[in-house]
Write a protein that binds this DNA or RNA. Structure first.
Lengths: 140, 140
DNA sequence: GCTTGACTTGTAGCTGACTACAAGGTTTAT
DNA sequence: ATAAACCTTGTAGTCAGCTACAAGTCAAGC
């Protein structure tokens, strides 16, 4: 197999084929070469690209951010230093998210540990902690 | 100070006051007691609640999920075991997010490390890795 | 060779999460 | 005491990210 029509690509990548059009519009997926008939003929890599997009999205990146990530690859004008810098910024961004999530998880885990698991919720430490907002990274 | 009008609460919590209405509709913020005039009088805790909502949202929880988190506290019928269970599910959910993000970060960091930071992007390992989709948690 | 299904473009609608506007009542500041 | 600022409800619009529909073209199976 060499190239894929829209529907095939959509099926393989597990997205709606209309989504492909949308991504094309948004500049996340290049308009691929066409056959005689005008049908799009997507190269195999498109599958990876789509999986990447979907993965990044699940991790909380917006389509614009995903585009940025993808541009690291495309921009021929940018030199490696530029790519490095952008990548480093992304790492910092990711790290922030991780930390906030860890904070949240630790608080929850601690509370689960403290909570006996019986009786009414009136004196459950989880609930109290949430009231005292020990639960999320405080924004002072 | 005892209670806050809508505008004050919005300002303190750093959200648009219309957002408060919206959250009320969505059941994330209870309709507070009213004064003579019908004005809402929010208790101080509302600030924490809002900060919690915003924090959770930034971590990628939807408003429905945030509501669920908040319900851990509100549901008087639920016993501690129930709360515990819900909390544990949330922890698992958070942990998944963390792992995916760590995977992404590690891949990026590794690539930054390998990348010299000079020359054109044509042979940048970051870009190659993205093409070979070693970049995101593979979904087999 | 003809039907059925997949493709094409264009346009319109949907959900989530807000955000803005309108028409009126209230509070506060001068 | 009166204008400005803020509250009330209702309704409508916006932006992201899809998703669906329409009218027509092409191709694959029987």
């Amino acid at each position: 197999m060499q190239s894929l029509t829209r529907g095939k690509l959509a099926k393989i990548a597990g997205v709606n084929s209309e989504t492909l059009r949308y991504y094309e519009q948004r500049g996340l997926l290049p308009d691929p070469p066409r056959g005689e008939s005008g049908y799009r003929l997507y190269p195999q890599e498109s599958v990876d690209r789509l999986r990447f997009i979907k993965g990044a999205q699940e991790l909380g990146f917006t389509l614009d951010e995903v585009k940025e990530l993808l541009l690291l690859r495309v921009n021929e004008d940018a030199d490696k230093g530029d790519v490095r810098l952008r990548a480093q910024r992304k790492v910092a961004q990711i790290e922030q998210k991780i930390q906030a999530l860890q904070c949240m998880r630790d608080a929850l885990a601690q509370l689960i540990h403290e909570c006996s698991g019986e009786g009414p919720t009136s004196d459950c430490p989880i609930l109290e902690a949430m009231e005292n907002h020990t639960f999320y990274p405080t924004t002072p």
